[in-house]
Design a protein around this nucleic acid. Structure first.
Lengths: 218, 218
DNA sequence: GTCTATACAGGGATAGAC
DNA sequence: GTCTATCCCTGTATAGAC
């Protein structure tokens, strides 16, 4: 893919049409993947003519990379809200972490096209220009992990957790509570039962707390 | 994809041609992914005519699913050898686990087409018939994890590790020492520096041992 | 009798033209 | 907004070669 694709076409045309196109593109790319998705299908799903699609986005690649970046930022924002809800002012740490783990997994891996596009990107990684991939990572997964690390730092400051390397701690938490389900469901391609999700979150949090338990005061 | 694809065509023709075809298919599917790979390219890479490819495999899908299953079994065998080497008769457990983690990550995620095909499968998961996917999982990831769980049980029997649920322990080990690199490299699509690999393995083993440390005898 | 080489029918895709 | 030029891919068919 070309690296300048994202900036190739500006914001011509009616904004609501543009929004319909990006929504449709997100859904279709998420369902079919980049190669299988057709511009015809996207235009049809957006309820506009194909000409209109090409009026807003120079080509298929531009459209894909554009919605990828947008989706990445949206998902990061959704993650931030989940952290606000479950990790700020937390009293029962185990409960807060478990709830966060469950809701994060559900948000990313469940049916909605939120996370589905992430699958398409992961599948196309080898064909995405390095700078766009970096931007996607930075707006998405990396930003979320950085955010999570900050929460852990705050929790450690309150004496609820033993943390010496916050980013590393956030990484461990994500591995133990999220990646198991992500792998099992192939990043949401296959459905995961809600109980399975809760079971894995609980086990993961348990292991996580065993690593980072605060030494008893004596 | 059709579910009977794997059994669709028998073993007609010269076996060495067949082998060349499967090797080429593994490489091309691994490089390009299922949709982008063309039967022309596979025939060319195998050094046979396209007609010969169709003589051995009914269609593109049959070929793909066939090499997928074969590759899965081969990878499992390679993993088994790594475990034999590093986890049987282990003396320094931390060292053995770390070496295993590093070599496993290298084997699956490094340039060779061993693990590359796994990427193609993960990308196509939504289009693979459930029973074939199950067979692939059973011959590959699941078999390896079961194997690893048995090693941990043996290690626990020797008093080197505290294990109460061996499959769960194997899962945690894989998450902590492998999935971080797998995710970072997008299952081998992007290169990973060898030092990065060693660093993550060491950190993962460290966390793992903290969870499963044998209580001191008193 | 299997393999090579090449050509071809049929379908579908992108992207542009009218 | 439809229509079309151009290309590529799958799978088959038709030649001849070891």
């Amino acid at each position: 893919m070309r690296s300048d694709a994202v900036a190739a076409t500006g914001g011509a045309g009616r904004p609501e049409k543009r929004k319909a196109i990006t929504r449709a593109a997100t859904a279709v790319f998420g369902r079919e993947g980049y190669v299988r998705a057709s511009m015809d299908a996207i235009a049809a799903e957006a309820g506009v003519s194909k000409r209109t699609v090409y009026n807003h986005f120079a080509d298929k690649e531009t459209l894909f990379l554009s919605v990828a970046l947008q989706n990445s930022a949206e998902l990061t924002e959704a993650m931030r809200e989940l952290m606000d809800k479950h990790l700020d002012r937390v009293v029962d740490l185990r409960q807060g972490l478990t709830d966060f783990a469950v809701e994060r997994a559900r948000a990313v891996l469940s049916a909605g096209d939120r996370g589905a596009l992430g699958r398409a990107i992961r599948a196309e990684v080898a064909n995405i220009p390095a700078d766009v991939l970096e931007a996607w990572l930075e707006a998405g997964p990396i930003a979320s992990q950085r955010d999570l690390a900050q929460r852990f730092e705050a929790i450690a400051d309150r004496g609820l957790l033993a943390v010496d390397d916050a980013p590393q701690t956030a990484e461990q938490f994500t591995l133990l509570t999220f990646h198991g389900v992500a792998e099992r469901s192939f990043w949401g391609a296959l459905p995961v039962a809600d109980e399975e999700l809760a079971r894995i979150a609980a086990l993961g949090v348990d292991a996580f707390l065993r690593i980072h338990r605060v030494p008893a005061v004596r």
